[in-house]
């Protein structure tokens, strides 16, 4: 079982966390339907580092996590609140996808 290190809770088992989807910027209110469809459904889905949201369930704290979907390495873990408030992203992180996310919490249970 993987460990996620957070500043607030130290090293915790990943079982305490809930995946909440990739971080995407919501289109502007006046964006066209196509842009919204893209935001809602299309995913970059790269085997590369990507910012995601993870909830630390026991504390109710959401984290923004830079994780490599190729290696499963957790590269950075910061409070989502601070992440969105700015000041967390470095230039390197600026490659945030302009398209989008909703959480995919339900997955089918059968083949």
């Amino acid at each position: 079982m993987k460990i996620i290190h957070t500043r607030e809770h130290g090293a915790r088992n990943i079982a305490e966390f809930v995946y909440g989807g990739v971080v995407l910027r919501e289109p502007a209110a006046d964006a066209g339907d196509a842009e919204w469809a893209d935001y809602l459904f299309i995913r970059e889905n790269k085997a590369a580092p990507c910012w995601e949201l993870w909830l630390h369930s026991p504390s109710g704290m959401w984290y923004a996590v830079l994780r490599d979907a190729g290696s499963d390495e957790f590269l950075r873990v910061v409070l989502a609140r601070e992440f969105f408030a700015g000041g967390v992203l470095t230039d390197d992180d600026a490659g945030l996808s302009s398209s989008s996310s909703s959480s995919q919490e339900s997955t089918p249970s059968q083949s």
């Binding site: 990739v22 990507c50 995919q104 919490e105 089918p108």
Partner: peptide
């Protein structure tokens, strides 16, 4: 069920 988070 499938694992929740994307992973190659």
């Amino acid at each position: 069920s499938a694992d929740p988070a994307p992973l190659y």
